[in-house]
Design a protein around this nucleic acid. Structure first.
Lengths: 280, 280
DNA sequence: CGCTATGTTCGGTGGTACCGAACCGAGAGG
DNA sequence: CCTCTCGGTTCGGTACCACCGAACATAGCG
């Protein structure tokens, strides 16, 4: 409805999303700037492009960019200063991923799973039903998938998402799909609540979820959920491969391997968290 | 010199570092907040701890934290809201690393090098002489080294740093060490300009640099520089292992492998970006 | 040689980021 | 059970600063 407002009629300040009180305007604007740069094509954005994207004046965009560049959040590249994301964000992203306690625990498990299955494996945390991947391990020799980290992905089309949803009750799943609509990605995508619940029932029975070209054509995915010490689903492990490289007989073997890996994660989350010496 | 300033006497506003004009105060403060959280222990910081760290009032720290949390830069964790770095930073860090054109090119090369040498391999970009690692590939089965990404590391103690410095003239090296002092990390660390220049001469001759327990005791590192299309050093590849696992005879083999990998990177940066067919 | 488009610099001013103080809510301790 | 304390949250008011518009500098182009 408010899509094609050429000029901002009701809101000239540039604050578009919610302003739930207690928000610092300039900081919010800076985050929007970073989002802009992160979505931009590879060669970065100029000050004027930033100003246009932020719907603000050149001078403001200039000041914001300078500030962020001084702190290393942006990196000015030579010709007519275009801005890319800077190395400080690499550092913060690395630290942020490491602060997710899962990552440390999962790395060796992912490595093992990746070599034993010869597939690309990933681990996602459960963000209210949506899977957010925080780490991946590429299988050596395979083509690299485009698997960005840190973004909530569609739950009903990914094996990790369906693994997470399989820990929900039917009521919870119903509520989930009312807020996250089931968009179609391929002809095989599950788009009705009924079909999804049926799929989840099968998933619960065999302990792993399958995404058979439901997200991307030609791509096959198997995932399994793991649980924290309170028994609630903390996330999921998944393995991804090209469909035609997989013999159908393999699927259940891989599924068991993925489920076993998820079981290892659960065990680590339950049992002794400190790897060092803490005999309390 | 300015190390142990407990209280900022002359500057009560909270703006400590340079304010080279055209800086947005709140955004700078937000970045300091993120730095604080990134350096904090694993369980996050509370609002009051943030306020103390920023030398500001609770309400301000609260507003900043809320804003950053709304955008996913911070993640509030349950008991008495403690803030950790959020998943948005994981995403931005991933994108930032991918925006470094090197990363895409280097990944397969690093994988190959990692499997052929059975070592952990990394790639750093040349940041004015200092190596900043932007990607690592762990060798399967090895212990994991603590190798943070995105931080400028000491040039005179790391193989990647010495590989980069070996592309400098003696004059440039001399200037470099005047601004970056040669701190000692282990008994074997090179701490004089004279010894460093001698080491760099050897490095140039054999085409790879060696860090023999000069940064961390027991750790051995071999690095080689690569060059962009203008012929200037763009960064370095390095391989890391435990010293006692390496037979001395191996060192030169590994050195040649690392140098060859760096040569591949150079070739990709110069010539044909598509890595598909290259039957040279 | 203008002309355009860009990055950069510079006052002035309205909005807002900041602060202090008050209000809650949860534990600890008596 | 009450009180005390500490930390999170909320609220007004004001000094300040983030923002803007306009001007300057510079480069590319017709």
């Amino acid at each position: 409805m408010a899509a094609l407002a050429g000029t901002p009629p009701s809101n000239a300040t540039g604050l578009d999303s919610v302003a739930p009180r207690y928000t610092v305007g300039s900081v919010a604007k800076a985050t929007r700037l970073l989002d802009l740069v992160s979505d931009a094509p590879l060669d970065g954005l100029t000050v004027t492009e930033l100003a246009r994207g932020l719907q603000t004046s050149k001078s403001t965009a200039f000041a914001l960019a300078r500030t962020l560049a001084d702190r290393g959040y942006l990196r000015p590249v030579d010709p007519g200063p275009r801005y890319q994301l800077g190395l400080t964000l690499v550092r913060l992203g690395d630290v942020a991923a490491n602060q997710q306690p899962l990552r440390q625990l999962c790395q060796p498990i992912l490595h093992n799973l990746s070599t034993s299955t010869a597939l690309t494996t990933r681990v996602a945390i459960n963000d209210g039903g949506q899977p957010v991947f925080i780490e991946r391990v590429d299988a050596p020799g395979t083509i690299r998938f485009h698997t960005p980290l840190g973004i909530p992905e569609l739950a009903h089309v990914s094996s990790a998402g369906k693994a997470i949803l399989s820990t929900f009750t039917d009521e919870q799943v119903k509520e989930f799909v009312t807020v996250h609509e089931m968009v179609r990605r391929t002809p095989k995508t599950i788009v009705t609540l009924e079909d999804l619940l049926a799929d989840l029932t099968i998933t619960r029975r065999r302990n792993y979820a399958v995404d058979d070209e439901e997200d991307v054509e030609g791509v096959f995915c198997i995932g399994a959920a793991f649980f924290d010490h309170t028994g609630t689903c903390a996330g999921a492990v998944s393995a991804t491969g090209i469909k035609r490289d997989l013999a159908p007989r393999e699927v259940d073997d891989i599924g068991r391997a993925v489920a076993a890996a998820a079981g290892q994660v659960t065990a680590l989350l339950r049992g002794t968290p400190p790897p060092a010496t803490d005999p309390r």
